[in-house]
Amino acid sequence: MGTASSSGSALQRLLKRRIGPWSGRVWGLVLNLAANAVTLWGVSSQLRTGSGWAWILIGGVATVACMAVLALPDRAADPAE
């Protein structure tokens, strides 16, 4: 999981990069919130009308993806190390 693979490093760089007002990590949290809302919208639709599986699937996959990326720690060497 947390090995310094090339894709891991690219994602870690993305998390650190400033994009507009916030860092990639903050944008990731916003995306996660949106994905959570989509999932719960799907659950709500499923409970009310019986047709929300697609939203649940899209939101659920996006939530898992956001969490998997956001959990990457910044393991870059520190100046004192």
């Binding site: 996660n32 719960l40 720690p73 520190d78």
Partner: peptide, 26 residues
């Protein structure tokens, strides 16, 4: 500094709780 989280599992645990807190707000 060097004492920041360097653990994937620790971050994931916190994100799970954050996601549940998002769920409450939503």
């Amino acid at each position: 500094g060097a004492d920041r989280s360097k653990s994937y599992l620790w971050n994931l645990g916190i994100l799970l709780q954050v996601t549940l807190l998002n769920g409450i707000a939503i």
